[in-house]
């Protein structure tokens, strides 16, 4: 079953009088449990595509279905809930909440969900921390962590809500290649053990080899593999 289904997606940016066609007629399905990569050079439209899938940007035309939900008609609050409950985000620049420590950062989305008790939240967060091997830094603030550690926390935060899909836009771009590889291995690991669907973008062929399947994008167009 497809977690994400895009049909005839176009995305145009208007810069004064010129129009940038960032995405051109994209048709795409992401299957449950897959570990896929979007590959393409800088400016090819990877981020734009992930934003549209992640419901943080709207396409100019075409339809987006997430977990069977047509997202075009949703309100801002509904989209926010959709993101909270169904999508996990891992950012290139880690993007943790600077004033919260590691544990609190991981607990944060669970608190927003307003679904679990305090104990459940704590337990889920601790379990997740174990899975990404960050237990020792439990009480540290993000500024006290290395890039690799931060990305582990980000992964934990993205996965702790058990989302349908985790989107990661160039998750290793700010890491050295060795750490990048470790992070990718961790993601792959979690994909295996937790059956979490991952979709990540990269322009680094080294990283690409971890992906089960890849989607190549060039000038906003997908060349199917």
């Amino acid at each position: 079953m497809a977690i994400v289904e895009l049909k005839n997606i176009n995305k145009d940016y208007y810069l004064g009088k010129t129009v940038v066609h960032a995405l051109k007629n994209i048709n795409l399905k992401i299957e449950k449990g897959s570990f896929s990569a979007i590959v393409g050079p800088s400016g090819s439209g990877k981020t734009t595509l992930l934003n549209v899938i992640g419901c943080i940007d709207k396409s100019s035309s075409g339809s987006v279905q997430i977990h069977g939900n047509q997202i075009d008609s949703l309100t801002d609050n509904q989209l926010t809930e959709l993101r909270l409950f169904n999508i996990g985000f891992i950012f290139q620049s880690f993007h943790l909440i600077p004033v919260l420590n590691v544990l609190e950062n991981i607990e944060f989305p669970l608190l927003l969900m307003n679904k679990y008790s305090k104990q459940e939240i704590r337990q889920k967060a601790l379990d997740m921390m174990k899975s990404v091997h960050i237990m020792d830094q439990k009480d540290h603030r993000p500024s006290e962590l290395s890039g690799g550690q931060r990305q582990r926390v980000a992964i934990a935060r993205a996965l702790v809500t058990d989302p349908e899909i985790v989107l990661a836009d160039e998750p290793t771009a700010n890491l050295d290649s060795e750490t990048g590889a470790i992070i990718l291995k961790l993601m792959k690991d979690l994909n295996k053990t937790r059956k979490t669907t991952f979709l990540f973008s990269t322009h680094d062929p080294e990283i690409l080899k971890y992906a089960d399947s890849s989607i190549t994008i060039r000038d906003g167009q997908i060349n199917a593999n």
Binding site: D76, R83, L84, L112
Partner: peptide, 16 residues
């Protein structure tokens, strides 16, 4: 802005 944008992305409502 980036920090708050991130919070919005991961599911924080405007009200929060």
């Amino acid at each position: 802005i980036p920090e708050i944008g991130m919070m919005r992305a991961i599911g924080t409502k405007k009200r929060f």
